[in-house]
């Protein structure tokens, strides 16, 4: 085409290396990780969390005492070289029990967060992607559950589920003789997970929905449709990777709050029940004797508090690191 127009176009000058000589390849995730590590509180939180996970996995194998071993000659002893965090009313080693409590807390909170984010992901992405009446109904249910107090739900579920489940376990034990069915703590853990999950998923659903609505309006999704990609591929390669950031943040904070809720339920006697240690039921035990043996209350409470704060700081750190607005 000839340039006989008023608007003269200067000749193309595209330098292949223009502007791209000083940046080296790196992935967005590595980049986010690097930025996160600059925040001291986040690093401390991460260290605490790693210690917690280590305790949860290996704790029972490395503790000096068995968490159930009683020594009635040493009740409510103060911390000493033999018992770092003292002993409880039945003469059990508190340090070993706190460490076992980490296992309970981690197991419950990981499963709760996994399940509730999964439910939230499914409900939220359907609501956000399909929209219309489906969205309206799903969000109505979500809001209803979100408004429901978890303690009431906890009592209701616990009271209605525990007897039949316990009975079923006994039946199975009698039928099979398998000692695994004598572990009534499984029933407790199961019920706690159900209770917390059923009230923990709505915020994930809301979050995922708003993320999906935001992402699906982006040009890159339109361009993907113009390419003829299937809905499944668009959701998998475009919608989920771009909406997952805030969900990860929420999951981190959710781990902390699930631990707190598990402790609250166990404290009230509708969660994990003794003799299986949970920080919540240890705090409750400690409360009875807090004047004479305050360490029984302080030890689990401090660990619980630290973990909740650590997860919340990690969430904040992730939030800053994953926020696309901070990308240059």
């Amino acid at each position: 085409m000839t340039l006989n127009t008023e608007m003269q176009m200067p000749p193309t000058q595209i330098n292949p290396l223009e502007e791209d000589t000083n940046t080296k390849p790196f992935s967005i995730w590595q980049d986010s990780f690097g930025r996160m590590m600059k925040n001291k509180l986040v690093v401390i939180s991460l260290v605490l969390i790693i210690i917690l996970l280590f305790m949860a996995i290996f704790g029972p194998y490395i503790t000096p005492y068995d968490y159930l071993a009683q020594d009635l000659t040493k009740r409510n002893e103060s911390p000493s070289a033999m018992h770092w965090l003292g002993t409880d009313q039945l003469g059990r080693d508190v340090f070993s029990r706190v460490i076992y409590g980490a296992r309970t807390a981690s197991l419950v909170s990981l499963l709760v967060v996994f399940l509730s984010s999964l439910i939230g992901l499914v409900v939220g992405s359907i609501a956000g992607y399909v929209g219309g009446k489906v969205d309206f109904v799903l969000m109505w249910i979500t809001d209803l559950i979100m408004a429901f107090p978890y303690l009431i739900l906890g009592v209701v579920i616990s009271v209605s589920l525990r007897p039949p489940l316990t009975e079923w376990m006994e039946d199975r034990f009698l039928a099979t003789g398998n000692p695994i069915f004598r572990q009534t703590s499984f029933v407790d853990v199961f019920i706690v997970i159900i209770v917390i999950t059923s009230t923990a998923w709505p915020p994930y659903a809301r979050l995922v929905r708003s993320q999906v609505m935001m992402v699906r309006g982006q040009n890159y999704v339109t361009a993907a449709r113009a390419l003829g990609l299937s809905q499944m591929k668009i959701v998998r390669k475009y919608i989920i990777p771009n909406s997952i950031g805030p969900v990860i943040v929420q999951m981190s904070a959710g781990l902390g709050s699930a631990m707190l809720t598990e402790s609250a339920l166990s404290f009230l006697g509708i969660g994990i029940r003794p003799p299986i240690p949970s920080w919540g039921n240890m705090i409750q035990d400690g409360l009875l004797v807090w004047r004479t043996a305050p360490h029984l209350l302080v030890a689990p409470a401090v660990v619980l508090g630290l973990m909740t704060v650590a997860f919340s700081f990690l969430g904040d750190g992730l939030n800053d690191a994953l926020n696309p607005k901070q990308w240059k």
């Binding site: 967005i28 890159y220 339109t222 003829g228 390669k237």
Partner: peptide, 19 residues
């Protein structure tokens, strides 16, 4: 769709940031 394609106004939001 292979035969008909589109170029959009805003190049900032047309590429998937995670790809």
């Amino acid at each position: 769709r292979q035969k008909i394609q589109m170029i959009f106004q805003d190049p900032y939001s047309t590429l998937n940031p995670r790809m």
